[in-house]
Design a binder for these strands. Structure first.
Length: 391
DNA sequence: AATTCGGGGAC
DNA sequence: GTCCCAGAATT
């Protein structure tokens, strides 16, 4: 029977997305009134400081960058200073910021700007993007801030604003989504005009400011006050109550499944519990004893036989039976738990009842379950057994 | 297209 | 603890 290929990924991106004609103008106006104006790399056209800040701000929050930026430009105030500095000094000034390839590229870029561009940064994004450490978005930001060039950025802030404003459901990291967002970024630019250079500075900064201060990840300001965002009247996410869903989070890789076999070693109304080591899952909790993991496909009869054997250390087992299966989901794996109940023969084991129980191991009446910390799935397992009347 | 680089803040 | 942040380079 012929199968239809079903797209495994999210629905295609709508091709009828409407970008308001005054999108750019609204962002520009908003930025001038409500945006950030006093960051250390603002109010300058010094491409060196602008470039440095953009590199530092890649995948790094503003608050973390400010002190590093100040120290860096104090130590190395021009691109010529940086180009001539030893690598050790550059790395020392970067230490703690992370993504150290940025620092190595920074140094290389400075040397290249000095040797190939006469010490002056290019203003054409297409040229900037050929320099080490400068991608498409960073190139556009440098060009806009340093020379008012009309070219769009697309960073994490802009992706969030776009995903919400235009109601884009796919994860922005996906190729198709990112491609579409670049198209929208081109369309959303403020119209060319006599004030283009100033507008592009305000617009580029405005998108970043919107994403950082209004259209934030957790609680966007529009939820409390629609007037806080210049785009709220056209925002799909706000209209449809999707600000908590957009942008879509990075899809998590399918988590692996592990399996284990636990023993419900039963003595009258008591079950044997074992204290788990402090490290590892369920550290410090009282859980059921586990049998060595199976590598071969699970075979109930075989497991029951092994459980009987295992239980001889505790008395004379009367029977062993597969009593339950459940799956517990952790962050990084799923655990399939199979439980084999082993009933110890009461009469044959009377003499053992008062025998010493090793530390880290104890017989517990189900009535006392609340007294011990027990993993949730183990507790469910025990409660199910009790409900069926086996304890 | 997926992975790597990373410390730090928000939650 | 997770998720993300003014992304780019590498595989």
């Amino acid at each position: 029977m012929p199968r239809k290929s079903v797209p495994r990924t999210a629905p295609a991106i709508a091709d009828d997305i409407h970008v308001p004609h005054d999108f750019g103008a609204r962002v520009v106006t908003w930025q001038r009134q409500h945006g950030r104006h006093d960051l250390p790399w603002q109010n300058t056209r010094d491409a060196y400081r602008i470039w440095l800040s953009e590199i530092m701000l890649q995948q790094t929050q503003v608050s973390a960058v400010i002190d590093y930026f100040q120290r860096f430009v104090t130590a190395l105030p021009t691109v010529q200073h940086l180009a001539a500095a030893p690598a050790d000094q550059v790395m020392a000034l970067w230490a703690g910021l992370g993504y150290y390839s940025r620092a190595r590229n920074l140094h290389r870029c400075a040397m290249q700007v000095v040797s190939e561009h006469g010490g002056r940064f290019p203003t054409d994004p297409a040229v900037l993007v050929t320099l080490p450490g400068i991608g498409r978005s960073t190139a556009a930001a440098i060009a806009a801030f340093s020379a008012g060039v009309r070219s769009p950025i697309l960073d994490g802030n802009v992706k969030r604003v776009f995903a919400r404003c235009f109601g884009i459901h796919g994860h922005p990291g996906e190729r198709a989504v990112e491609t579409r967002m670049w198209q929208l970024a081109e369309q959303a630019l403020p119209a060319p005009g006599p004030r283009q250079a100033d507008d592009m500075v305000a617009y580029t900064q405005g998108l970043m400011d919107l994403g950082a201060t209004v259209c934030s990840r957790g609680k966007p300001a529009c939820l409390a006050d629609a007037a806080a965002c210049p785009l709220s009247a056209d925002c799909v996410a706000r209209r449809d109550g999707l600000t908590g869903v957009l942008p879509a989070p990075k899809p998590r890789a399918a988590i692996p499944e592990r399996s284990t076999v636990m023993l419900l070693l039963r003595r009258e109304r008591e079950v044997l519990l074992r204290l788990r080591p402090d490290s590892g899952i369920w550290g410090g909790l009282w859980s059921l004893p586990e049998m060595p993991v199976d590598t071969v496909p699970f075979d109930a009869e075989d497991a029951e036989a092994r459980a009987l054997d295992y239980a001889r250390a505790f008395g004379t087992p009367a029977r062993a039976v597969l009593a339950g299966e459940l799956t517990h989901v952790f962050t990084h794996f799923r655990l399939l738990i199979r439980a084999i109940r082993v009933d110890l023969d009461a009469e044959a084991n009377e003499l053992r009842q008062d025998g010493a129980t090793p530390a880290g191991q104890r017989w517990l009446s189900l009535d006392d379950l609340d007294a011990l910390g027990t993993p949730a799935p183990v507790r469910r397992l025990l409660e199910d057994q009790a409900r069926v009347g086996l304890f």
